[in-house]
Simulated assay, not measured.
Amino acid sequence: MSDEITPSAAVRTTSDAYRPPRDHLWFARSRHYIVFVLRELTSVFVAWSIVFLLMLVGAVLGGGLQEFAALAARPWMIAINVLTLAATVFHAVTFLNLAPKATVVRLDDWRVPAWMIQGGNHTAWLLISALIAYFVLRSP
C-alpha cells in the first residue's frame, strides 16, 4: 500500500510507440523507384524461363517432346512466354546498365567511363545472342 510503481506499469509496451503510417505505394513517387521495383519483379519471369527450359530438357531426355510441344503451342503458354521474353530483356538491359555503378575499372590513373562499360556489356550480350541464334536457327 505504498507509492511503489509495479514493474508492469513502468514498462511501456511497443504499441505505445509512434508508428508513422505506411505508404504501400512508396515506389510510385519516382521513376527510378518504379524501374527498381519492376526490375525486381522481372526476376519471377527469369525464374519461369529457367523452369520452362528445364521442362524442355526433361521432355527431350524423357522422350515426351510431343507432349511438351503441344503444351508450348497453347495460346496461354505462348502469351506467358512472350511476356517472359519482354520481362527478361528488360531485366537484362537494366542489369547491364547498373554495371558501371558496381564496377569501377581503372587503367593507371584513368577511370573507364560508364558508357564504355555499358557499351561493352551490351555488345557482348548481342554478339553472344547472335552466336546462339545462329546455331539454333541454322538449317540442318
Rank of each mutant, 00 (worst) to 15 (best):
L83G: 14
L71I: 09
L71V: 09
R31V: 08
T88G: 09
G58I: 09
S139F: 12
M1I: 03
A99L: 15
L38Y: 08
D23F: 02
L41F: 11
M77N: 04
A124S: 04
W48S: 04
W48T: 05
Q118I: 15
Q118W: 09
A92F: 11
V35K: 10
H32C: 06
T13C: 15
V105A: 02
A70K: 06
R12N: 06
I128S: 00
L65M: 09
G64F: 03
N97Y: 12
D109C: 01
L126Q: 02
H91Q: 10
R19E: 15
S43Q: 14
P20Q: 07
M116Q: 11
D16T: 14
A69N: 10
Q118C: 13
I34K: 09
R19S: 11
A86D: 05
W115Y: 14
L54H: 00
V11L: 12
G64T: 07
R138L: 05
D109A: 00
I5L: 11
F52I: 05
L41W: 10
L137R: 05
R111T: 00
L65W: 08
P21W: 00
T103L: 13
R111S: 01
F27G: 01
N97L: 15
V57G: 09
A59K: 03
I34L: 08
T14Q: 13
V11C: 12
F36M: 10
L54R: 06
A87S: 11
W110T: 00
V136I: 06
I117K: 00
L96V: 05
W115R: 15
I117M: 01
R138D: 03
Y18E: 14
S15F: 13
Y18Q: 13
W76K: 10
H122S: 02
T42A: 12
P75Q: 02
Q66E: 15
Y33S: 13
R31Q: 07
A28L: 13
F36Q: 05
A114G: 03
W115G: 03
